[in-house]
């Protein structure tokens, strides 16, 4: 069984602030992390590895510094990691990104047929949730998005049954393999790498695939291959509601104020 997990290095957006005057992201001093949804995709692949002895390949498209995201995945137990890095890949939107990732996956697929691709449901910096489905379309794999539980996996029959977490209900879906899943955080809780694995992964050579290897038409990838245009970045105005500051000393007053508001807006009704 071969599982591919595409991952992304993202700025820790919970630490990103928006400059109120220029409306731009203040990214200074913000560390990079593995996209949190992707960490759950890796975990799910590793759980399948534990159970079915699957081979887990982690790939990432990004700058050379994105290598550590792959090392982290290796330290957790992934078997193989490939970095897709080339200047011509830069500035890609979801269309161009899924193109590069799919091309890499196809190469891996030819060497060792892929049964499952597991992605995080979306990244925290783009929030589009388009790359996973994009890869599925290009690979012509069944796509199962927003999965919060793998109910059944039958490798002999090449069938998978998953539960999808939708807004107001769950949906149980059965599909044939190979398939692409995008997973939500609730699907699992993360493991923590052992130190020997960390030390080992720090020394592992991670192959870098540039476009010389993938040989894609430069007009279909990177900035040139991205039809998306960013016109403006701004912090949305809050139309209603207010923030009650509980960080000060007077927590009791803040709590009382919230309780008063709850009554005032008839969210809580007195008997």
């Amino acid at each position: 069984m071969h599982i591919i997990v595409p991952v992304k290095m993202v700025p820790d957006t919970t630490l990103v602030k928006i400059d109120p005057e220029t409306n731009t992201l203040v990214r200074e001093g913000v560390p990079f992390i593995t996209n949190p949804f992707d960490t759950h995709a890796i975990e799910e692949a590793l759980r399948l590895k534990d159970r079915y002895d699957a081979h887990v390949t982690v790939i990432s498209m990004g700058p050379p510094s994105a290598e550590w995201v792959l090392r982290r995945a290796l330290s957790l137990g992934a078997d193989q990691a490939i970095l897709l890095s080339d200047r011509v890949f830069g500035g890609a939107d979801t269309l161009a990104t899924s193109k590069v990732l799919s091309e890499a996956i196809k190469r891996l697929h030819n060497e060792h047929p892929v049964d499952l691709i597991i992605c995080g449901m979306q990244t925290i910096d783009g929030d589009t949730a388009q790359v996973g489905p994009g890869i599925a379309c290009r690979m012509k794999f069944t796509q199962l998005t927003l999965v919060d539980r793998i109910l059944q996996l039958d490798l002999a029959q090449k069938r998978i049954q998953v539960r999808r977490k939708l807004e107001e209900y769950y949906e149980s879906v059965e599909a044939s393999l190979p398939a692409l899943l995008t997973v939500v955080r609730e699907i699992n809780s993360l493991r923590y790498p052992t130190v020997p694995k960390k030390l080992e992964s720090a020394e592992t050579m991670i192959p870098v695939w540039s476009n010389e290897i993938l040989k894609l038409d430069p007009n279909t990838i990177g900035l040139k291959g991205s039809p998306t245009n960013v016109r403006r970045i701004f912090a949305p105005q809050r139309e209603k509601g207010e923030i009650i500051d509980a960080m000060g000393d007077n927590k009791d007053a803040a709590v009382n104020m919230i309780i008063d508001k709850l009554f005032e807006w008839n969210i809580v009704i007195q008997n």
């Binding site: 923590y192 790498p193 052992t194 020997p196």
Partner: peptide, 16 residues
């Protein structure tokens, strides 16, 4: 912790 990665669940977040 370091060889087995076996510890009470609450610690995962603390460590990370």
């Amino acid at each position: 912790v370091m060889e087995q990665s076996k510890f009470p669940e609450e610690l995962t977040n603390f460590f990370m």
